[in-house]
Amino acid sequence: MESQLVFMLSKQLPGQAESTKTDYSDPASLPAVLVVILNYRTPNLTIECLHSLVNEVKDLPNLRVAVTDNNSGDDSNERIAGVIAKEGWEWATFMPLERNGGFAYGSNFPIRQALAGGSLPPYVLLLNPDTVVRPGAIRALVEFMEQNSKVGIAGSRLEDPDGTPQCSAFRFHTIWSEFDGGLRLGLISKVLSKWIVAPPVSEVACTTDWVAGASMMIRQEVIEQVGLMDEDYFMYYEEMDFCLQANRAGWPCWYVPESHVVHLVGQSSGVTNTKKPPKRRPKYVFDSRYRYFLKNYGSLYLVIADIAWIIGFASWRLRRFIQRKPDEDPPYLLWDSLRNSFLFRGLRLNS
């Protein structure tokens, strides 16, 4: 059974979001935070992530953690629940789910429970299981949000274990970014630089279109106004879609580099794991891309975006062959892009 989650947290009053007078010297006065970690067959990583939160809980006494499991079918339930019980982590709750409904489904579940129980805290932090939270990372996000009451979403600086920064603040995908991402030609990239999805990593806090869901803090009012993440995305594009909806509702997104979080990229899906040779992209990646463009920009935009990507990528593949460049693309990417485009799928949102 999908367990119920009840948080002993007082619901935020409407006026509190405007206050910037929090007494940071008193941890107990800091707002409550719900951290949501979704596990899928990564119990070792999830447990390591939980260990990294121990000191965060000491620094933020009102922090609670909900670990959901998307029906992993392995020993995740016993191991994670066992560690929580053994360590006496009263701040952590484990929630096994009955099916694998994807990232949005598994992440939304405890938030929906908190909403239904009237105990949604002022902030929700989506946190990947393949992360290790550096000391003070969550507090840095909370303090930033408290000092900037009009900001709806804030993301951490994601980094490798050695501290090398990863791209974690992005621009929305567009027709131009699709063409550039496929073509990969330096001169064109310079011309289209303002549309490139992953700009250079900023060393200072800055506004951005969207941040990686590996460590993304959301204000309570955003969830109440915009709703939860779209569960028709299985994996990928759901956090970008959510940030877009928040942006359209007047809630900007910011990147906060003072919040450091180690991210062991792609450990659950393997799709974005840069430490191994690329594997064929699963269909759900193409489904998510298709849904994002059609839902948010309409059928004509999707058609042009598909054409832009295919022409750009086909040109790159030809140039790569002529110039004998190494092939670092996922297998069958051109064919998979074609068969998942409007040419084969048509223009139906739920196709």
Rank of each mutant, 00 (worst) to 15 (best):
K325C: 02
G213D: 14
N273S: 05
K283F: 03
L244V: 00
F313A: 14
T42C: 04
L302K: 13
S315H: 01
D230E: 11
W210V: 02
V204A: 12
K58Q: 15
A249W: 01
R281Y: 11
L45E: 14
S351E: 10
Q16N: 14
E78I: 06
G73S: 07
L158I: 00
D180T: 09
W176K: 06
L120E: 10
R134P: 04
N39D: 15
A140V: 02
R291V: 01
L38H: 13
F144A: 06
E78A: 12
P257Y: 01
T164G: 07
V211D: 02
Y255K: 01
T272C: 05
T42D: 01
V6M: 01
L228G: 12
W251T: 01
Q225V: 13
D241N: 13
V211M: 05
P331G: 07
V35E: 08
T174Q: 06
D23M: 05
I196K: 13
A137L: 10
L34H: 07
F234S: 04
T22W: 15
A32N: 10
A205H: 07
A214N: 12
G270T: 04
D160E: 14
D287L: 04
G155L: 02
W251M: 03
P135Q: 10
G88A: 09
A32H: 09
S351H: 10
T274W: 13
E48N: 13
Q16F: 10
Y332N: 13
S315L: 14
K86Y: 06
G155V: 00
Y24S: 06
Y292C: 12
A32W: 09
G82I: 08
T20N: 05
P61Y: 08
A81D: 14
S156K: 00
F242A: 00
S268A: 08
T207N: 11
S19Y: 04
R112M: 14
V303D: 03
C253M: 00
D59I: 02
V271F: 05
V65C: 07
P14C: 06
V262G: 00
D230A: 04
N296K: 10
I188T: 15
M217W: 07
T20Q: 08
Y233L: 07
W335E: 11
R339C: 09
A92T: 11
L300Y: 08
A249T: 01
N247T: 11
W89A: 08
G163C: 02
L244D: 01
P331Q: 12
A28D: 12
I153E: 08
A169Y: 10
L347Q: 03
I307R: 12
F172L: 04
L9D: 14
I175Q: 08
E231C: 10
N70Q: 12
S337D: 11
R348M: 06
M1L: 08
L34M: 14
R345I: 02
W254T: 00
D209A: 04
L347Y: 02
M235T: 08
P252W: 03
C49I: 00
E159Q: 15
P161H: 03
I47C: 03
S52L: 04
K190M: 03
T274V: 11
C243D: 00
D130A: 15
I80M: 09
G106T: 15
T42H: 01
K275E: 14
D180Q: 13
F144G: 05
V133I: 09
T272W: 12
P96V: 10
N55S: 14
T68K: 00
Y332M: 07
S177M: 06
P121N: 09
